[in-house]
Simulated assay, not measured.
Amino acid sequence: MVTCEAVGRTGHLVDERMGGRTVQRRELAPSLFRKKLTQEVQRKLQKALDFPAQRGELLRQLFTDVALEVDARAQERLYGSPQAADGVENCGFMTANGTFPRVCFYEVFAQHYAQVPEDGKEILPLFLQLWSQSFVSQIFALLFHRWLFEIPRQESEGSLRYSTAFVEGASNIFWIDLQSNVRRFYSMFNYTFEEVVLDNGRLSSFPIQARQDLLLLLSRYMLYYEPADRLRYYLKNFPKTGNVVLEPADMFVTELTDQVWSCGQLQVHD
């Protein structure tokens, strides 16, 4: 297993072991620009709540906005140094071929709400009121996936509600990537794989059903986002728990078969 390096809050390099995958992160720098971005998200969610006739289009636009790539100038404003704009010290992930994808805005928001969780308190009630609307679970998954798994909460009911929304949103998001034959949302998949599902301490803090759903989600998209040679590592390190009915290999084959069937049905209709 390869040692990974991450930039901690102190600015020093911190060793982490994460499945043989080198991940280099840098903390977001304090900035008015970042504050304006979060305020804009809140404004659009509030507008979607206030104007039902425009709600669908407003939420679709917000989903599109947070999925956009961050240009080099904006990266420098967000991460506070020119080095952050070259992709090496940003919050992105190294891909299977050793390159760093450009950071997308959803990664910035996810990192922000994990660093400053109190900023999510005003936005989360808006999500709850819009829960049943199209694109809401996707937006929630993109913006709050790190907050969900890194910030402790006391109420188990809230954990189940949020984790259920995450699985629903992430499943739709990964399906969009699959249909489009792109990997724009790879970093969220990688985070779920390396830092949640393969972290027994973090995974065990969630309700049983949420754990089961996360394991199934990972199995479904594993071979799309990761090279085939990662499968052995995945099956070897897949968490074993008496609450999960299927063994890792059985779960993987079942979910992969279902996914292949779904793709086949899509091609037939096309």
Rank of each mutant, 00 (worst) to 15 (best):
E226M: 15
A72Q: 15
F144H: 04
Q259D: 05
E69H: 13
S156Y: 07
S132F: 03
C104E: 10
L58G: 00
D229S: 05
Y79F: 11
F185E: 04
L49K: 00
I151K: 14
M18K: 13
H269N: 07
F206S: 07
M222K: 12
M94K: 15
C104H: 15
R73H: 12
V41D: 00
R60T: 08
N190P: 00
F252N: 09
G98L: 07
F100C: 09
S163K: 01
G80W: 06
A249G: 04
W131G: 05
T254G: 05
V14S: 04
D71H: 15
V244K: 06
G56V: 03
L203K: 00
E89K: 12
H269R: 13
Y113N: 08
L78Y: 07
I173L: 15
P30A: 12
L178E: 12
F149M: 11
K36M: 12
F252L: 13
S262C: 03
M251K: 11
T257Q: 13
Q111H: 07
E247D: 14
R34G: 01
F185L: 02
E107D: 08
Q265P: 02
S137C: 11
V167K: 04
P152Q: 09
E195I: 01
L128S: 11
F63N: 11
T254A: 11
R183H: 10
R161A: 14
G158L: 15
A210V: 03
L215G: 03
Y225C: 02
Q61M: 09
A48F: 01
E76P: 01
E89R: 13
V108H: 00
Q209C: 04
Y191F: 15
T257K: 14
S262K: 03
D199V: 00
D71M: 08
L68P: 04
Y234V: 09
Q83F: 10
L45I: 03
I123F: 01
T10K: 10
E157N: 10
M18D: 10
T257L: 14
G19C: 10
N172V: 03
R34L: 15
Q75H: 01
G201V: 05
G11S: 07
L148T: 08
T241A: 14
P117C: 11
P152C: 06
L13E: 08
S31C: 06
R25N: 14
F140E: 02
D250R: 14
L68G: 10
A114M: 13
E57I: 08
M1R: 13
Q83E: 13
M222P: 03
S204M: 11
F189D: 10
T254I: 04
G201K: 04
G11E: 09
N97C: 09
A165F: 05
E40G: 06
L256K: 15
P52W: 00
Q138K: 13
I173E: 07
Q42I: 00
G19S: 12
Q265W: 06
A74W: 09
L126K: 01
S81E: 11
D229C: 03
F206K: 08
P30V: 10
F238I: 02
N90K: 06
N90M: 06
V253T: 07
T38W: 02
A110W: 06
Y113H: 08
L143R: 05
E107H: 08
F206M: 12
